[in-house]
């Protein structure tokens, strides 16, 4: 089922994601301070750090969802100008799953700007959305109300909506938190396919024990950058101890 050719074309090369001196404060309390990070051009990157380290906030700030100071660029251009190079897969808990929408409706929202204003999605996009649901193993549930799916299935619907953006860079906030084994397998397979396509996957990840086997690069964060780079170099016990404040073995 997962071997199906991806319904979207290869992403165009967009250049490197670079964060320079990014700071965020909520009500005067600093959440992120002077984050400078040059992301890899492609591949799977994990953002790890303790609770309250600002991992989700970093993604939101990069995407312009929270006010920040500093500079974020993709290939030298502002993120606002490069919006269609990005896709966001938020945490599942951020939306109301009682909303009157089917899985297919939600995936179509990833294409909401494609037809232009005042027009419907059209048949071709519906078929593309269906193919994306098939890619995450949910073709049978396309017509189901989203609240009547398991947490793992909901996460896969969100992933399919992100894939519908056909973006070069995907930002995912805890996509593997609380999902069942089958969903996890499917999500990781999609990650591998994105990696082979030459896309960049930036993923907030909570499970330190699986970082080395699943990700090539890592950003260790605790309100600012503790370490960043290929996993063998940056994901060291010393760096983790500095981030978490306690000695950790991985």
């Amino acid at each position: 089922m997962l071997a199906i050719t991806p319904p979207e074309a290869l992403a165009p090369a967009t250049g490197r994601l670079a964060v320079e001196g990014l700071s965020v404060a909520y009500r005067g309390v600093p959440v992120l301070t002077d984050v400078t990070w040059s992301a890899p051009l492609s591949g799977l990157t994990a953002i790890v750090g303790p609770n309250g380290a600002g991992k989700s906030t970093l993604i939101k700030a990069i995407l312009g969802l929270v006010p920040s100071t500093g500079r974020v660029t993709i290939g030298g251009q502002s993120v606002a100008a490069m919006r269609d190079a990005t896709a966001y897969v938020p945490q599942r808990a951020t939306v109301d799953w009682d909303f009157p929408a089917t899985a297919l409706d939600v995936v179509l929202q990833g294409m909401v700007r494609e037809p232009g204003w005042f027009r419907g999605y059209g048949r071709a996009r519906r078929e593309r959305a269906l193919a994306l649901l098939d890619r995450v193993g949910l073709a049978d549930l396309a017509g189901r109300q989203i609240g009547q799916m398991s947490g793992g299935q909901q996460q896969r619907v969100f992933l399919a909506r992100g894939l519908a953006r056909n973006a070069a860079i995907l930002f995912l906030d805890e996509p593997l938190a609380g999902v069942d084994a089958a969903s996890e397998r499917i999500i990781l397979d999609v990650f591998d396919a994105l990696d082979r396509d030459g896309r960049l996957v930036v993923c907030v990840h909570h499970d330190l024990g699986t970082v080395s086997e699943r990700f090539a690069d890592v950003l260790v964060l605790n309100k600012t950058v503790i370490a960043a780079g290929p996993v063998p170099e940056a994901f060291t016990p010393q760096n983790l101890a500095r981030a978490y404040g306690v000695p950790l073995t991985v």
Binding site: R83, P90, T94, A101, Q109, V112, P115, W117, Y121, R161
Partner: peptide
């Protein structure tokens, strides 16, 4: 009628809608 898909996307997930450029 003209803005049905935009209104729906914003009502369901305003953050995602913003990242898409709505």
């Amino acid at each position: 009628a003209l803005l049905l898909k935009e209104f729906s996307a914003v009502a369901f997930d305003p953050d995602f809608a913003a990242t898409v450029g709505l």
